[in-house]
C-alpha cells in the first residue's frame, strides 16, 4: 500500500506502536497498564502462530506446547540460577529446540498438513498431562519442583541483565513487553521480505512447485516452525513474569484453541489481524471470567465455529477489501490459479 510514494503499511503500525508504547503509561492507571501488558504478551503469542500458520502454511494446533515450555523453562531456570539473564535466553532456547526436534520428525517425514496439526496437538496434550501429574516432591529439576497441577508460585521476575538487585517493576514490564511486541512485529515483517520469507510463503502456496524450482521445502518449513516455536516461548517467558506464576494451564487445549481463534478471527495470512484478535479476545476472556452466566468454552467454541463456517478469511482481510475497495481505483481483473486445495484436497 503506497500513497504518494510513502509506505503507509510500515508507517501506520510504526506510529501506532510508538504512540501506544509511550502514550499509554501517561493516560492509564497501573491496573489497566498491567492488563495492556498481558494483551501485548498475548499479541506476541498470536504473531508466532500467525507467522507459521498464516505465512508458512503449517497448521500448529498445539501451539501452547511451546508457550508452556517457554514458561516452565524460565520458571525452573530462574529458580535454579537466581538471576534472570540466562533464564530469559533458556526460555527461548528450550521451545526453539523442542520445535526443531518435533519439526524434524514431522517435516522430514513429509507428513501432510493435517497430520502436523494432530501431532502438535498431541504433543501439547501429553505435555499437559505430564506436567499436570508431576506434583510429588520426587519430581524436580535442580532446586525447582515441577509442581504438578499446583504450578509454580512466586517465580522471581526479570531483572536488568546481569544486575540481580535491579528487578523490573510493572511499569518496566510494560515497556519491555510492548517494545518486544513492536520488535517482533517488524522483525517478522522484515523476515517475510527476505529470500527465506518469500520461499516460506511460496511453500504455503504450492510446495511441489517450490521443490521443482530447487528449494528444500523441508528445511524452510522446519526453520519457519522453529522460529514460531521460539517466539511462542518468548511469550511464555513474559507471561510467567507478568503473573509471577506458572501452571499447567499454559499447556492446555484451551490455550492452544485460543491462539488458533485469535489468528483465525484476525485473519490467517496477516500479522496485524491476529494481534487485534489477541487483544480483543483476551479482553473478552477477562470479561467472561468475571461473570458466571456464560461458560468460556461455550463462547469460544461458538466463535470458532461461526468464523470457520461464515468468515473463514477472518476480519482483517474482509475489512481491508471493503475499505480499500472503496478508496482505491477499481482493480484490474487479476488471473488467479484455482486454490491448490480444490485440486489436491481430496486424495
Amino acid at each position: 500500500m503506497k500513497i504518494a510514494g510513502i509506505r503507509l503499511d510500515l508507517i501506520v503500525p510504526g506510529v501506532c506502536g510508538l504512540a501506544l508504547l509511550f502514550g499509554l503509561p501517561i493516560f492509564l492507571d497501573l491496573f489497566s497498564l498491567l492488563q495492556v501488558t498481558l494483551y501485548a504478551i498475548m499479541a506476541i503469542l498470536a504473531l508466532s502462530l500467525a507467522f507459521i500458520w498464516g505465512y508458512g502454511g503449517i497448521l500448529c494446533l498445539g501451539h501452547s506446547a511451546f508457550f508452556g515450555l517457554g514458561a516452565y523453562a524460565y520458571a525452573i531456570a530462574v529458580i535454579n540460577i537466581g538471576e534472570s539473564t540466562a533464564p530469559f535466553l533458556i526460555a527461548i532456547l528450550v521451545p526453539t529446540l523442542a520445535a526443531a526436534a518435533v519439526g524434524y520428525f514431522m517435516f522430514y517425514g513429509r507428513i501432510s498438513d493435517v497430520y502436523v496439526g494432530v501431532m502438535t496437538l498431541t504433543l501439547a496434550l501429553i505435555l499437559f498431562n505430564v506436567v499436570n501429574s508431576t506434583s510429588g516432591a520426587q519430581y524436580h529439576i535442580g532446586k525447582a519442583p515441577i509442581g504438578g497441577y499446583n504450578g509454580l508460585p512466586n517465580v522471581p521476575g526479570l531483572n536488568v541483565p546481569f544486575d540481580p538487585d535491579n528487578s523490573l517493576d510493572p511499569g518496566d514490564m510494560y515497556y519491555l513487553c510492548m517494545g518486544l511486541l513492536i520488535v517482533v512485529y517488524f522483525g517478522l515483517r522484515w523476515l517475510l521480505t527476505t529470500r527465506f520469507g518469500r520461499v516460506a510463503v511460496a511453500i504455503r502456496e504450492n510446495e511441489k512447485r517450490v521443490e521443482f524450482i530447487g528449494y528444500d521445502s523441508r528445511l524452510h518449513k522446519l526453520a519457519t516452525f522453529t522460529i514460531g516455536g521460539g517466539l511462542a516461548g518468548l511469550a511464555g517467558c513474559l507471561f510467567v513474569n507478568w503473573g509471577a506464576y506458572v501452571s499447567p494451564t499454559t499447556f492446555s487445549m484451551m490455550q492452544s484453541a485460543q491462539v488458533i481463534i485469535w489468528v483465525l478471527v484476525g485473519g490467517v495470512g496477516t500479522l496485524f489481524g491476529p494481534m487485534i484478535g489477541a487483544v480483543a479476545l483476551s479482553w473478552l476472556t477477562v470479561e467472561v471470567g468475571s461473570q458466571q452466566l456464560i461458560d468460556a468454552n461455550l463462547l469460544f467454541g461458538a466463535i470458532l465455529l461461526v468464523f470457520v463456517l461464515l468468515v473463514p478469511r477472518g476480519i482483517m482481510p474482509v475489512l481491508i477489501d471493503r475499505v480499500w475497495g472503496r478508496i482505491s481505483l477499481p482493480r484490474r481483473p487479476v488471473f488467479t490459479a484455482p486454490p491448490v486445495a480444490a485440486r489436491e484436497g481430496k486424495r
Binding site: 484453541a257 488458533i260 468454552n297 467454541g301 470458532l304 465455529l305 470457520v308
Partner: peptide, 12 residues
C-alpha cells in the same frame, strides 16, 4: 477447526 469449535462448545 470447526470440530474443535464444536468440542469447546460441547465442553461448555
Amino acid at each position: 477447526l470447526a470440530s474443535w469449535g464444536l468440542s469447546l462448545l460441547i465442553v461448555g
